[in-house]
Design a protein around this nucleic acid. Structure first.
Lengths: 206, 206, 206, 206
DNA sequence: ACATAATCGAGACGGTACGTCAGGTCTTTTT
DNA sequence: AAAAAGACCTGACGTACCGTCTCGATTATGT
């Protein structure tokens, strides 16, 4: 009965897509995620509601797309994807510290905070969106951590029997935990402390 | 004009309170949190909507209350609060492993999953609720971890310069991270791996 | 599944009812029936849409109610209904002529024309509404015609074997026909001609 | 800016025209007039929406065209126009009765009822369409009545001072009145009664 | 023991947004 | 040049809930 016709994406209006992205980000920044309605996005974008419903399944999906596109634009990259590499000075502790501090800074950046929290919250409840959130926003940087750890492992700076995925989560888990639950201040010192503790546990057995 | 009268809680109907708790938990279990509306809770509880609005500020607050009460009831405790202590067999790794595995089991329990995720999600976005969520549901067990770690520290099993709060987050952070973001299977093995890594980092300097 | 709860009319807001009537009539007069939307009625009446949907099944039903109430208010009568009697001067032709001319005037009154046409049109397509339209707006006056004709019949001015319902339709049918289909000018002369022809056919057999 | 170009009707696709007619009639029969949408007509006819908008001003106009074409096809006539004559047996009452009964039968034919009512309703509200409706569907038969009455008048069977247009409306008005308003059963007996009454009023003065 | 006052169940109300539908315009590609 | 296809903006639909509000009908003290 209800036909699930998928629209012809080759005829999609690029103008509308961009306008919707911008409107979504603008509104979330100005009035917050919960008060950002699809109706308002459409109105601000000068677009029919149907044009949103045609291409996205939910408000959160719109915002996720917009956010990803924003990240790419901000990073200067085109909508294709090569992401920059994690520094490798040879000093593992310093390298991880640098990046974890950067992560902390980003989480503390008020411009990013609102939409990121909103998307994380939606993703927690909606597995589909959660997977997309992780894949598009988190996975890339996770992979960089893992790569750097593997390099260190090969250089003998890290125990051979350590799983880089687990190590990665030991670094990132506490930080996001503190950020999400607001159980304490999210500072560079905290990032350093995490790196310090974790690396102690990863040292090769003497 | 509109007086903001705070209701007289001594006249509060215990019957209604319980009915609302039950209705909220039932609905969240059956239709999920987003489709659980205040109107539906009121209807199922056989209660006027105003009775909910009188005593709770939001749907999430209702669920949080209901969930806390459920936890207490399940644990056999009265609505007062003494929480059981964390085991201390002298073997720190074993003790932490036991408890972290229990946490993993609870997070995997389908009955608890839906409401916990919903509350976590709301808490991420709403700081007030987040604080209450942490305070009522997480803080108690966090405190137990911290106590056990302090005991181990005093016994010389853990470096004197380690911060128990940080150590705690090293244990709990990765687990909740994996649970919230669904980045991997949440198993006993994973709990053990976390404990193993973290304790290595906490050993007294040789 | 879909509960058909009927609202409690004793709690109905009289204020809203009147405001909706006025808004409906105002809008139909100003922008015409097809461009009068339920949304606009609600907005102009300062009322939630649901309040309209709660009490009326359709836009046409709203207008019909409003129109009936208007008719009663205009006629000075309260919302109860005793309708005035048709004159009986003894001269049947004169009496019928008077009333049919009045009907013609009413049909030509621009204030009444738009809503009446709209309601008639809806009634033609929707039997339920049509019945209500006839019952509430037309039947009362029809009954007066019939009564006057019966009186004439008893006075021997009309054939005993004539059916007053049919006679009534002979008078009223051509007038409404011409009005609805705009097949010719709707004048007093036309009314007189109709009365003349019809009465010839109703004279007692010589 | 937007030119109001009138399309070149010589290049019009006959195939599409017929398909649109058929789709319109089919849909009105199946789902009723209000639920028959231009979009649905286009889809069923395998035609672009623009093709409809190019050639017709409104849904009602499409249906009217389709209905007229259907009537002509049904009557076996080509799309040109000669309409059959009304019988003249010399017995005016019998002749009019025959035709009025035929009219009654047509109005009672369920296949014709839905579209006719829909068109009549639209015509009541939209004068332009109303005129077309009368002109294309009603006027031809009206003219036949008028012709027959004129013949009778010349034969001295009808008063010389009677206006055939009025006489015609005396016959047709009550029937359509009853049909449109559903104020009573539309039977052959009713048709006969109307003819009887009307002819009494048309007899030459003794 | 009873009056008094608050809570309670119920649900109508003014609103906001939802997700859907169709209208009528426009563009792209095919015939 | 007209046609099939269908994306687009627009705007109304009817529904679902929101949070507020009034209405009797219970309570539940505190004099």
């Amino acid at each position: 009965m209800t036909e699930n016709r998928t629209p012809d994406s080759s005829r999609r209006s690029e103008r509308s897509r961009r306008a919707i992205h911008d409107a979504a980000l603008g509104l979330v920044g100005e009035v917050g995620y919960p008060k950002t309605t699809i109706e308002a996005i459409a109105a601000r974008a000068g677009v029919g509601k149907q044009t949103i419903y045609r291409w996205w399944p939910s408000k959160a999906a719109v915002l996720l797309d917009a956010f990803v596109a924003l990240g790419e634009r901000t990073a200067g990259r085109a909508e294709g994807e090569p992401a920059p590499a994690l520094p490798d000075t040879g000093d593992l502790a310093a390298d991880l510290g640098t990046v974890l501090r950067a992560t902390v800074d980003e989480l503390n950046d008020p411009a990013f905070e609102a939409p990121t929290r909103a998307l994380a919250a939606e993703g927690i409840v909606d597995p589909r969106l959660g997977a997309e959130f992780v894949e598009k926003l988190l996975a890339p940087s996770f992979e960089l951590y893992a790569a750097r750890l593997r390099a260190a492992q090969e250089a003998g700076q890290v125990r051979a029997d350590a799983d880089p995925r687990v190590a990665l989560e030991l670094l990132v888990g506490p930080v996001t935990h503190r950020w999400l639950l607001r159980t304490g201040p999210l500072t560079h010192d905290y990032a350093d402390a995490i790196v310090d503790h974790v690396l102690r546990g990863l040292l090769p057995n003497p």
